[in-house]
Each structure stands twice: as C-alpha cells, then as structure tokens.
C-alpha cells in the first residue's frame, strides 16, 4: 500500500477540519472494501480517516415507538447477535446471518457497507424493506437521506466527498412482522451473487398488510418493487402472487455476468421471490393454526 496518514478524529468537527485541508481523504470503517482499493492501487489517499471513535458512531439504541438507531461504525456481526435486532427486525437479522464471513462481519461496518453501494448489497435490500433513513454529516450541516435515494446505481451514491454517514434509523415495526430473505450465490460467502429477494409483511387479523419487496442482482442497485407490493395487499391468492411476480419481471433490468446470464437471473429471482412470499403466507397460517 502507498503511504498515507492514518488519523482517528474524536469529533465530527475534527473530521471536518481534515476535509478542509484540501488533501484527499478516505473514510475507514472496517476496511472490508477500502482495503481492496488501497491494496490494488485504485485509491492512494493522503489521509485514511478512521471514524470509529466519533461519539455516537458505535451506538445502538432501540425504542418501541421511535425505532432503531444504528451508529455508522456498528459492525455487521451486531445484526446477527444484537437482541433488539433479533427481536424486532427479523428480516435484517436473517439477512445478516448470510452476509460475507465471520471475519468480515466482525470488521465491516453498517456505514461503510451502505456507502460502498454495491449493486448487490443484501444489507441495503433489507434496509429498503424497513424504510431505513441514512443520517449524514458534512461541514455545511447534517441531512437525512432515505435509503432508496442513497443509491444512484453501479456503486454511486448521493453522498458528497466530505460527507460522513453518522447513523441509520429504522422506524419501529409491530411484533407481528414477518420477514424472509432468499438468495442464490455461486459462493457461500455471498460473492458472485446471482439474485436475492427480500419480503416483509405485517400481520393484521387474518391478513397481511404493509408488504415490502426488495430485490437485488437484477438491476444496477437493490430496489423496492412497489407495483408488486400493491398487488399482494390483504390475503394474496395464487393469482395475486402470479401478478405480483409478473410485475417484478416488468421492472427489473438484469445484466449478464460471467457466472450467470441475465435471463437466468430473472428465472432465479422469480423462484426466490415466490419462496419468500410463500414463506410469509405460511408464517401467517402457522400463526393462525
């Protein structure tokens, strides 16, 4: 790796001063993606800024009315083990179990993973279902970016070069929320993603409301599928599911990759999403039984 200065600010203001120096600054969370770019020479910043000591960046707070606040430097492993996640955000918890490897989950941070903006981000797909909002800070001030507006496609984000993700906020969800994530990859650690389908719904009496569908691997970014969600409202019958799946097919644009052709990714996604939706309906029936 080329020489750089490693710095570890203790406040946002201190971080801001480094941005103002006119040097190139790269932000370090867990390094899971930054190191790839430093090692292969793609990036050669003057400063690598470790944000883990900034107050609040490692905080996890849950309140049954206000929802969940996850600091940007909280690691992905917390989504596997954190009690509040396991209890109140089952889809996020289930997704986290499958993310990368223990080594990576122990280091990679929520802020860093979201800022990397992989087109096949499983974390983002789950966050999309929960209507997460990304809170950021830059010298001009703080702002809130809904997760659906953070990703601009193909690793691009709405974040400025001097903008830090401070935390992510997820609204509270009723206890009776079901979530299922299904994926198909070439490798067990999630590399070489073919497609993934996240589904979430809230039980209300004998019906399922608030359906959320997010898909990945079939477009330039993880995406919600509002047309399909509308078709599933209530207690979806077989033909509603078929229509919803057709609506998804109309709204995706998969690309060929060396390990999966676009039409194969379409077919795989269809099967995965069908399974996710059916698993949620089965959950409801088990609950009623």
């Amino acid at each position: 790796m080329k020489a750089f200065d490693y710095i570890r600010p203790n406040s946002l203001e201190e971080a801001g001063r480094y941005f103002a120096q006119g040097k190139s600054v790269k932000i370090l969370g867990g390094g899971a993606t930054l190191f790839l770019q430093l090692q292969n020479g793609e990036l050669a910043p003057d400063i690598v800024m470790d944000v883990k000591d900034i107050p609040g960046f490692r905080d996890v707070r849950y309140h049954h009315n206000h929802g969940l606040k996850l600091g940007a430097a909280v690691n992905l492993q917390h989504l596997v083990t954190g009690l509040e996640i396991r209890r109140h955000y089952p889809l996020l918890n289930q997704t986290a179990h499958q993310l990368a490897s223990p080594q990576i989950r122990n280091r990679a941070t929520i802020g860093g993973t979201l800022a990397w903006a992989s087109p096949v981000s499983e974390l983002a797909a789950s966050m999309l279902c929960y209507d997460a909002v990304c809170h950021t800070w830059r010298p001009e001030g703080a702002r809130a970016i809904p997760i659906g507006e953070l990703y601009l496609g193909d690793f691009k984000t709405a974040l400025g070069p001097d903008e830090l993700i401070t935390h992510v906020h997820l609204p509270s969800f009723p206890v009776r929320t079901f979530g299922v994530y299904q994926r198909q990859t070439v490798r067990h650690d999630g590399r070489r993603m073919i497609a993934g389908a996240a589904a979430l719904a809230v039980r209300k009496h004998n019906a399922l409301t608030n359906w959320r569908i997010a898909v990945l691997g079939v477009d330039d970014r993880p995406k919600r599928m509002p047309e399909a969600e509308a078709l599933l409202a209530g207690a979806p019958a077989e033909e509603d599911i078929e229509q919803a799946l057709a609506a998804v097919q109309d709204n995706i644009h998969p690309q060929d990759v060396v390990y999966a052709r676009a039409d194969y990714r379409r077919t795989v996604l269809d099967s995965l999403l069908r399974r996710s939706i059916q698993a949620i309906i089965d959950n409801l029936q088990d609950y009623n039984a």
Binding site: G31, F35, V48, I104, D189
Partner: peptide, 27 residues
C-alpha cells in the same frame, strides 16, 4: 489473498476473528 476471501491471515482481535491483512496495525 489480501482481499479478505481466504482467511489464511485470521487472528483473534479482542476475541473476535478478523483477517489481519485487512486491519491497520495503527488501529
């Protein structure tokens, strides 16, 4: 591999397994 794929460089850091090729010594 230097990319966090192979795990040959794994060590325990405060009891948790990490790839030591993806941790700065200064950290």
């Amino acid at each position: 591999c230097s990319t966090g794929e192979c795990g040959a460089c794994s060590v325990l850091l405060n009891g948790e397994v990490v790839n030591s090729c993806m941790v700065l010594a200064a950290e």
